Computed example of a mutant assay.
Amino acid sequence: MTTTARDTVDGIFDGLEGLTIDSHERVHFHHDEATGLSAIIAVHDTRLGPALGGTRFYPYASGSDALTDVLRLSEGMTYKAAAAGLDLGGGKAVIVGDPATLRSRALLRAYGRFVGSLGGRYITAGDVGVTAEDLDVVGEETPYVVGRTVAAGGSGDSGFATALGVFSAMRAAAAHTFGSADLGALTVGVEGAGKVGLRLIGLLRDQGARVVLAEPDAGARRRAGETHLGLELVDSVVDAEVDVYAPCALGGTLTPASVETVRAGLVCGAANNQLSTPDVEEMLVERGTVWVPDYVANAGGLVQVGGERDGSTPDQVRVRVAALEDRVRDIFATASAERTTAGAAARALARRRLDAAEAPPGR
């Protein structure tokens, strides 16, 4: 049974810090009044190793929304590490607030102390709203941080590695879906032009693919247009006439309602928790659309920051990230042989590794 731990918790977490959450090993709440830091660290499973996952800095509407997000994300990290063959557990953290107004050195250092208080059970990295430079500051207070800048001894931003992993996964999925791994013959709708989506667009266009982008933020649209001249911009790609839908923003875009509008034959992107509920994959199958499990496709960033722990070189990391193409190919082969979905095949792969591992002390 899992209990929760708390330090000084502000009103946004009232009623949450005493919950029992059987799906997770430990959930930690923390508030630092001096800096305004309100954060949650969720450790889902450490059977394969210490929990490693990014910190999301986001203006959640409520503590309940933040908790729901961190629980889903941390569980996804367990399956991501297991399916990628990494000796890491699953964890995630959220900082509640708008990074544009709340971010400060003092807050980041306070967050570093919070991470450090777990004694290495959780290792943090970057996610939405957190940069490599932010992690440098977090690292002033704890050694349990990866993804810092190269100047600070880290491997730098993991956006390219994540994008390369999605690109590699997309090649394998395209071969399964369309009969060829050549992405240059396809039209890909990318949703989100953040640090991953922007790099994925570059990889796809370098291969000759036609790319259309949906990005609500005016600044991000402008940067994308300046980086990739002639890029086509549209209001939505989830329902666009494209071969591949690549969700690369926040998750939950594939819902029972939105699935009815999907025209792509393949869904493969970097966003976490793309399915609003697990049964959405079956709905996609019924429409003839193939989905690459998000935690498999977007594992490149985890491979990169995980490589910091064993001293891997950038070339070694790149080879491992590109090998996600083989992992996705194997998952589809298993799914076909067992007459199941790619999601079910990926979950079975991850669970086999988890079930074979020894339970951590105290679980």
Score class of each variant (00 low, 15 high):
V96L: 14
F160I: 04
D14W: 02
G225D: 04
Q316M: 06
D157F: 01
L275T: 03
T131Q: 11
E260W: 00
T253D: 10
D279H: 15
G192W: 06
S336G: 12
V292T: 15
A106M: 01
T78C: 06
V115L: 07
R148G: 12
L67F: 10
P247R: 04
G89N: 12
M283L: 15
G301F: 02
D279E: 15
L164E: 13
T8R: 12
G306S: 11
G179W: 07
V115W: 04
W291Q: 14
A132C: 08
V146I: 01
G288K: 13
D206V: 04
A350S: 07
L204N: 12
V319S: 14
V296T: 11
I12F: 00
L200M: 09
G179L: 09
G36N: 05
L19G: 10
A357V: 00
R171N: 06
T341H: 09
L324A: 07
R363P: 00
G288W: 11
L86H: 09
D87C: 09
Y122D: 09
A356C: 03
A151V: 05
D134Y: 11
L19M: 15
L284A: 13
V188P: 01
S336D: 15
T124Q: 02
A42C: 14
D32W: 07
I331L: 15
G219C: 06
F114I: 04
C268L: 06
T35C: 07
L16T: 03
G91H: 06
V238Y: 05
V292G: 14
R56N: 12
R121V: 02
K80H: 10
L254A: 14
G15Y: 07
V317K: 05
K195N: 15
L71C: 13
D14I: 01
S104R: 07
D330I: 00
G194L: 06
A270L: 03
D127I: 03
R47H: 14
V321Y: 08
V290E: 14
T334C: 00
R210Y: 04
P50Y: 03
D127G: 07
E140G: 08
F114T: 04
A337R: 11
A323Q: 14
A169P: 05
E191V: 00
A39W: 02
R105Y: 01
G112T: 02
T46K: 10
H31T: 15
L73H: 08
T187N: 04
R26S: 13
E338P: 05
D243Y: 07
T101W: 03
T78N: 07
S155F: 14
